[in-house]
Each structure stands twice: as C-alpha cells, then as structure tokens.
Nucleic acid binder design. Sequence first.
DNA 1: GGCTTATTGGATACTTCTATACAAAACTCA
DNA 2: TGAGTTTTGTATAGAAGTATCCAATAAGCC
Lengths: 413, 413
Amino acid sequence: MPKTNGTAERPALVNSGEILSLIATGTATSRSALLEASGLSRVTVTQRLNALIETGLVRETARTMPSGGRPTRVLGINEQAGFFLVANIGETYIHLAAMDLEPAIVSQSTIPFNASDGPAVSLAQISDGFDILAAKARASHGSLFGVSLSMPTPVDFKRGRVVGPSVLHGWDEFDIIGWLRGRFDAPIYVENDVNLMATHEHRQNFRHVDDMFFIKAGTGIGSGIVAGGKIFRGAQGAAGDIGHIQFSSENAPLCRCGKLGCVEARAGGWAIARDLSSRGFTAENARDVISLVEMQKPEALMLLRSAGRVIGEVASDVVSILNPSLIVVGGTLARGGEFLLSGIRELVYQRCLPLATRELQIVLANPQKDSALFGAAYLALEDIFSLGKVEQLIDRHTIDRARPPSQSGAIAG
Amino acid sequence: MPKTNGTAERPALVNSGEILSLIATGTATSRSALLEASGLSRVTVTQRLNALIETGLVRETARTMPSGGRPTRVLGINEQAGFFLVANIGETYIHLAAMDLEPAIVSQSTIPFNASDGPAVSLAQISDGFDILAAKARASHGSLFGVSLSMPTPVDFKRGRVVGPSVLHGWDEFDIIGWLRGRFDAPIYVENDVNLMATHEHRQNFRHVDDMFFIKAGTGIGSGIVAGGKIFRGAQGAAGDIGHIQFSSENAPLCRCGKLGCVEARAGGWAIARDLSSRGFTAENARDVISLVEMQKPEALMLLRSAGRVIGEVASDVVSILNPSLIVVGGTLARGGEFLLSGIRELVYQRCLPLATRELQIVLANPQKDSALFGAAYLALEDIFSLGKVEQLIDRHTIDRARPPSQSGAIAG
DNA sequence: GGCTTATTGGATACTTCTATACAAAACTCA
DNA sequence: TGAGTTTTGTATAGAAGTATCCAATAAGCC
C-alpha cells in the first residue's frame, strides 16, 4: 500500500528526495552529474526528475554547460517554490525578512527590540512581523519552508535554546523552538549570529574551503568555526568563544564578563571606544570607532591596529590548534580594513610555525549588513534539503500545492 | 554481466558491503539492528549476512542480548579473518606489530631506529620486520588488510607524508605511502602519533563522546582533536599543535623550535628536566622527571604542578575555542597523576566561562604503552570497513580465500 | 510445564530499478 | 553544411529487493 501522504498519487516522487537533495545542495546540477552522484540508472533519474519538475520544486535553468557535444542543461531548485522567514535579533532592533530559496531577500522589515521584555513578548512581536511578511510571500513564493532565528548570544543549536547568562535576561534556557512551533507549521532553527555570519561567508564566497575560521570583530568579539565544510559547535554550542580568552599581564583591563584581561576588554569595539573616550573622543561602540578611523584620527588608527595585534594573538592560538586554511575577518571593526588586518597578520605570521601559515589566507569579509540573515537562510535551506529530511519537504509541498490554486488575494490577519 | 571480481560466483555478496560496514563499525550488531539500520528487508539482510558468514568475515558470537522474547544473537566481525601490520616510530626504536581485527596484538617486535638513516633505509627495515610478522600472522589470520604507520611528526594524512621540518631529517615530503605500496599489496596509512593516541583513547574508552580533546604531555607536548567523533586534522594535518603556542612574558625560556616562551619550553618533559638539572638533579626527559616525581622529590612535584598550570593555560584556550565535553591527558607526564591534573583543572576552571566548563570532564588517559599502535589499527580498520570501501575488501578477501586450496583442487560451483 | 514475547528462516507474488539498445537532440569544429 | 560528440528520452526484458504470510526457535514469567 502506498504511503498516505502527498506523494500518494505520484509514485515517481516517492524516492526522489535524493535527487532533490543533490540539486539543492549543488552537489549535482545536471542530469549526467545526477546519474553519477546518485548511482541510479538514467531511467530512474529521468522519471524522478520529471516528477520533481512537475511539482515546481526543480526547474531547468536557461544556463547550459559545454561538454564537447550537446551541452548539459543546468538544473536548479526553483527559488520561488517556497520561502523562509528569518530574523536577526540585534541589540536594539530585530531585522525580519522573507527569503526565497536562492537565498535572496523577498521582503523585509525592522522592529524595535527591548531585551528586558523577555522572550515571550519578543517572540510574539517577531511572529506578528513574520505573519505580515508571510502573507505577501505566500502569493508569489509558495509555502513556508522554514523559520530561522539569529541570536546575539550562545545558542545550544540542538535544543534550540539560548544558553549561559547573557545580555538577554530571561532568555536563558527558554524553549524558543517550542514556542515558535505554536505559531508556525515548519521546521524551526535557532543559531548564534556569529556562526550564521560564518556560514554565509563560507557558502557565498569560500564554498570549497574545508577549514575556515571566521572572526567577528564588532563591539564584542566572537568567532565561528567551519570544520570539514560544516559549522563546528562543540558540546554546548559554545565553540568559538574567543572574546573571553584571557592573557595574563599587568594592568589587565576589566571585562564586561567580570574577568580581567579578556580579548574583548583589550580589542573589542567597546574597549577601543573606552580608550578613545579617555583620550577625549566621543565613542561608545564599534561604529563610533570606525567613524573616527574613517576620519583618519591617528589615535583611532593606532588603537585599531593595536586591537588587530590582540586579535592576532588569539588568531595565532587558533591557527596552532585548528590549522585552518583561511581566516575571514568580519564585523564592524573589519570596516577598518588593513589597519585591523595588518595587526592580525603580524602576530599570526610571527607566532605560528611555517607549516601552518604557508598556505594560510587572512582576508576581510564582504561588508554586508544582512550576513546573519543569509546565514540563517542557508542553515534552514541545507537542513531542509538534507538527505534524511527532503522527503518530508516533498510531501509538504505537494500537499500545499494540491490545496488552493491561490488566485483570490486577501489573507485575513 | 556480473562484475569480474571475487564476488562473481556469489551474487548475494555483491551489495553486502553495507551490512559488513554496519557490523564492523559497531553501528548494528544484531540481525534486527541491521534491519533497522540498513533499511533493507529481512530477506535481503539474511541473504547477505549468510554470504558474509560463509566467507568467514562475519560470525555469530556466543553472546546474546535479552529482548523480552527470544534473545538476539550478537554478530561481530571474525577477528581472525585478516590482520594489520602496524608500526610506531619512536625516537630511538620502532615498535612493530601484527594486529587482528579486534584490534588486538597478534605478535610484535622492536627494531632500533636511527633518524639519520633517512626514510628509504628505515622503511626497508620496517618492511623486513613486517614480512616476518606477516608470515606468522598469515597462517592463523587470513590475509593482510592494511598497513598503518605512526609518526612522531606532523603528517599530511591525505597525502601520506611527513610535513614540516622536524627531528626526522630527510623524511619531509617523502612519499611514504608510495614507497610502501611497492612492498605491500594493501591500503596504507600514515598518521601522527598523537592523533592515533587520541583515536585509541576515544574508541576504547569514550566512544560516545562527540567532542574530545586529547593532550599528550611527554617530553614534548602535542594534542589530538576529536570533533564529531572523528579526528580533526586541519588543512595541512597540523591541527592540535599546542606545544608551540607562545605566551608573552618576561624571561620567556627558549624553545627547541627557536621561538621564545612556547608551551613546550615551559611545561614539556625536557623543560622540566632542564629546570630540575639546574637544581642539581639528573634528568633529561619526561621519564626521568616522572622517576623523580615517583620518588616524591618536592622540587619535581612543584615543577610538575606548575607545568600543569601552563598546560591548563592552553587547555583553557582550547576549551574556549572548541568547547569539548572531555579533556583526556596522556603521555609520560600523565603518570604524575593529580600533580599534573590539578594544575590543568585549576586554570581551566579559573579562565573559562561556566557555560563551557559545567559539563566538562578532565581525566587521565589509561597509561598504555601501545596506545599509538592501537590507534593505528583503529584507523586502518575504520577506513577499510567504511561504506565506500568495504566492497573492495570483500573482493580481496574472497579472492584470497579462493586461491590457496585448503584441501584439494576445485571448489564446487 | 504452559504462556508470552521476540527473533530468525523461508516461500511466494509483487514492485522497483537496472541494463541495454535505439533514437533524437543540441552543440562544436572543420 | 555535415561529421563528430555528448546529452537526453524511451521501450523492453530481466534482475534485485520487498511485503507478507507462515513456521520454528529460544528465552523469561507465572
């Protein structure tokens, strides 16, 4: 007896998940590549591919790839077959967006964020904002494929919770996924913002780099580890917490965390702002620091370069421990360009053994404001299209399509 | 047309690799577990399993597991179906062994090692030693399944070469795998000894820990990273090189590597021996240090504890960066027990955020001399039985068995 | 000992996938 | 323009795997 789900009337769809996964992840984007990658026969691949194209999930793109003979048609997922709802929770605002499967932003909005409101209130505000974006997106982009949240705190990814004390009082151990499941009928993801920025940078610009280290130098300092092409999270999801590594020395500055001499207290945006303030400038955070840097104030340049050396000190530890082939420096301070980078490079090349540095690249991230949003979309995208879970997506999609031909416009609120 | 290989006459063997892999890796060790894990039907599993048992690769063990009804028979690979040749290259000696698939040592030998001989001479000596061990092993343990080498230097695992300048002059970039392929017709592996010790410790005692950090504190200091259950090697295979992380401070000691203030120059066995010598003791290496510790010499105890604090300093960096759930301390200095461990614990708990330490365990490794050998065996074992490669093994094994006629002439077919 | 439970083996009809061959399509290059 | 090359589609027979039913087996439990 066939399964009692969306694939019931389409036998060829039953096992087509593998094909969809290969296309979505970019592992195989032509019919012949699919043949090789899947190990299936041409008959089977053709059959399943046609079924997928029929559902609208996959389409033939206009592009072709030269082969010597008849060029191969490039396949891709139809970016408009579904959409994600993503949110980036910042310090004082929340950035919401509906994103297609490219991923690209379809529509977006911003709402104020008050950390003291607690999770239930803020999640309700986010959900309300999502509802508005979803109503628009549903008209042009099919159904909701996933919800993905970027948090400015450590997150236990598996459990979908903020962990450890942080600026977000009341969020610690709050069941975010559980709460959102009550409002949205789709897979839900919660992840730390730095890991998402690292994901975006990797997928967008360095997809073929196996081991990458991403440093976010902003008001605070954090990092994301890409090991074997995947985000490495550690036991509690706290991996990459380089901001509070301590260096012992005399007159170690006091950190926000209560310890002395943390990296962040020496090189974070707030620490540089602190030092600039004591020299008579007005600066509170990383953005203020960068403004002064852009005005070419010598004190700001000097302090930024010196911050680079501090970050370079941790970076050299990381290089010794992880031996990445690429370090990407992002965050607000990265807008300071070479003034920051040169200090990092200096320390890494000074301290690390040549074996680890001879093929090491240290570069700036693309300054992009929505990096965490894109990372959040990639996270959802890749999980949803992963081998074990695609079949669910296919079911979901075919059922949704079977329902209304959706011509009549308005959606009630 | 059937494949023209060892499985030609046994159709049921053709796709039985998955079954074998599941059993060998311990993922599924009973018939019902195999059914679930493989997703195949019982008929197919039974058929393939029988084929595997017939070849002698798999056998039913005497053990059973209670189930409420008829207990399930526990399956396992037949440890005597094949053997590995493994070698651990030390500073002045090479430890050779033939190991079964348990893995357990079948027979062993030791030959002197002279680093200045160069790779060709030493590899020839190793191969000669292997030949003797193999001749014995072949009589009782089937055919050679793999050759695995443990090196006291950084190794680029993928390319099978020693990389970076080290104590082993002439070995840098020498094609070890290529050389050994001329002598042995089996897969060949070369890996750094610390990674192998970490592998052994993980597989033997902490198989279900995902993220583990292994510190080898001996004459030198190194480490092995287990991330997601697998050894993490980094871009050049140089990951885990914590011995040469520098701490800036006044009167930083000079390291063997030419830099100032490396961890090894502060806390390595040779550094403690150096400090003990300057206090009138006779000590050259980690073993000498431990002898003095075992004699309860206060100076030795003090220096060991202080070395623990230095190691703890790097360990705390590692905890911040990787967030492991377990740190295992091995190597000769670990024989100093709590005197070493307490210093490590002290610094880690002092420096790291509670989130990262609240479930962190810091323990001593089992003091076992052959740790690297076992690690080398596990390395070969797991690769050979991995999903993509088992089929080759089956071919190889069935051909080998078909060749030497045990009784007389032809096998009925 | 009988009852229950769960594993294990085997036979059958049926579904799914493959191998193979042939044909058409779409590009390059001379 | 036509030959060469590779991709793509489809029909067919046959191989491989599954579902299902029935039966035997080996424990624990009362």
